[in-house]
Amino acid sequence: MTGNSGNIDGKQAGPKVFEPVWAIALNTFRETVRDRILYALILFAAIVTVLGIVLGSLSVGQDIRILKDIGLAAISFIGGIIAVFAGTNLVYKEVERRTIYLIFTKPVSGWQFVLGKYIGLCLCVAVMVAAMGAFLIFVITAASGSAGFAEQLRQMGQELALIYLELLFVTALATFFSTFSTPVMSVLFTLAIWLAGHLGDSLFELGKLTQNPVISQFLSVIFYCLPDFAGLTRIRGHLLYGTVPGIEVLTYLVTYVFAYVLMLLVLAAIVTERKEYT
């Protein structure tokens, strides 16, 4: 510490708008990867391998299909767990550990912080989904042989993309709640909306069935406000039976997800910007 005192005077560097976003994203990615993600990967690898061995030994003709369904469900579930639990801690932990003082005493805006945290976690989830997907393809190929490998890869790629799209949505929900709520409450809120989003169609149908116009109106408002996870599941269902949805459906879906995510992140940024850090 003594001796050369370094150059600690002088000129000022001008901040660039996306540099802090990227820095926060990379930091979040590193933190999530170094903290907990490997355990989830190991768990997934263990489940799929055991299933692969068990189903392979049964050889009833449907083993590959079952393995694929269970594998994709596991990817969705484990990715969801990471998105919900890491997402709901995303902003809250920075406030609790007071690392947020170091961020907001530098030229960083609320939106840069929220966007950086979100992108970092989404990168992490992307790596997870890709790694688990690659492992699943490997196990399926090992079980079924190389016949139809390209087709398997194409189908799995589409399904994984849809799973990831849903996880982007869940991560945004968790990020939003983490800006003003404790992790436990945020987990409950996120899971409740995730589940309700999957039941959106049923709510809409229920609204049509009821005789009471107030209840019908109320249910349809809820239907339109809730994220349409049921829509994503419908398309995954089509993919399972080899039907690829049209480009207009996919465009609508991607636009819908990104618009919803954007709205949640804007709200999260407003909350973060208005908050006091005592």
Binding site: Q12, G14, E31, R98, T99, L102, T105
Partner: peptide, 15 residues
């Protein structure tokens, strides 16, 4: 952008 801050009992990213 032109100032530096050291908080009391600083906690950083341990990873």
């Amino acid at each position: 952008a032109q100032l530096g801050y050291l908080p009391e009992n600083p906690y950083f990213y341990s990873h």
